[in-house]
């Protein structure tokens, strides 16, 4: 089973071009979609989750038990296998977590109420909410709400799971717990995790893509992507006023404060004077791709 996206385009009515010829192949397993805020991640997620129309292009979920599903045309079919955790969502404040999950489970097609109860109870336990399952959702804290969101996405054994910026606003412990949970999701499931936190992808994903300004600018296994830039990232500690000077002469991909001084990473095929080599990581991949893409944009 895989999800293939072909030449997907979307321009909003206010003229913002959200997706530009996006082409991706997403295999089974955890797929990380990395990009800065406003890159078009959520637009892509929403389009796959049937909440938004595309101007052109195709999204297919291939090799499913029901054959190939055309996401754009067969919205109802895709919804039957979908688990979606939106970036932002709300709940009915006066309904309890248990009732709401049971309700969603039935909408997802689980019509046997006994089965439904088993699943809901198990999921509530899984996301550590069983002790508050009778409480109204309006009383939940941010983290609890997010866990509720995960539980609802997992209901009904979905084969396509989309989680959009799931860890935003979670404290480190909660984030950790969430990562563990995601890693448990079965092998024969397509899971798309959209995030702007490189670490999430590093920890979880076997495949990934980077998008920026609506374009896919990199795609592949994280290890391969890191390998491709190995030996091309250099580091230097500089004084802050010098930064503009370095930017003019090098491709500065990131700046970081270290003990009150500024450390910069640059991308260069060859060693540069005064720079030390660095062991490249996914973050360097991410920043190098983003900066080069955005510079291209500015030039063109």
């Amino acid at each position: 089973m895989k999800l293939t996206i072909q030449d997907l385009n979307k321009t909003y009515s206010n003229g913002v071009k959200a997706l530009h010829d996006v082409t991706l192949t997403i295999p089974q397993g955890m797929f990380g979609l990395l990009g800065p805020n406003g890159a078009g991640k959520s637009s892509l997620m929403r389009t796959i989750a049937t909440l938004q129309e595309a101007d052109s292009g195709q999204i297919l979920l291939e090799d499913t038990p029901m054959g190939t599903i055309d996401v754009i045309r067969q919205k109802d079919s895709i919804r039957r296998v979908l688990g979606y955790l939106p970036q932002e969502f709300g709940v009915y404040p006066k309904v309890s977590a248990e009732t709401m999950l049971d309700h969603i489970a039935s909408l997802k097609g689980i019509s046997n109420s006994r089965e439904r109860k088993l699943i809901v109870d198990a999921l509530l336990e899984k996301v550590n909410l069983s002790h508050v399952k009778k409480k109204n959702l309006g009383t939940f804290s941010g983290g609890m709400k997010q866990r509720f969101g995960i539980a609802q996405a997992l209901i009904g054994n979905p084969s396509l799971i989309i989680v959009d910026e799931p860890t935003a606003g979670l404290d480190p412990a909660e984030r950790n717990r969430f990562h563990n949970l995601l890693s448990e999701i079965g092998e024969n499931t397509v899971v798309i995790l959209s995030t702007h936190i490189v670490e999430d992808v590093t920890n979880l994903c076997s495949d990934m893509a980077i998008i920026s300004l609506g374009n896919v600018i990199a795609q592949g296994h994280p290890a391969d992507l890191v390998a491709a830039i190995q030996g091309k990232i250099w580091r230097k500690i500089i004084e802050k006023p010098e930064l503009d000077n370095y930017k003019a002469n090098h491709q500065v991909i990131s700046t970081q404060l270290k003990g009150g001084r500024t450390q910069i990473h640059i991308y260069s095929d060859s060693p540069q004077l005064g720079f030390d080599p660095v062991e490249a990581d996914l973050e360097d991949v991410y920043f190098s791709k983003i900066t080069s893409h955005q510079e291209l944009r500015v030039m063109s």
Partner: peptide
Amino acid sequence: LATLPVAEK
């Protein structure tokens, strides 16, 4: 998670 019951839809 894998032990979660799978219901008929």
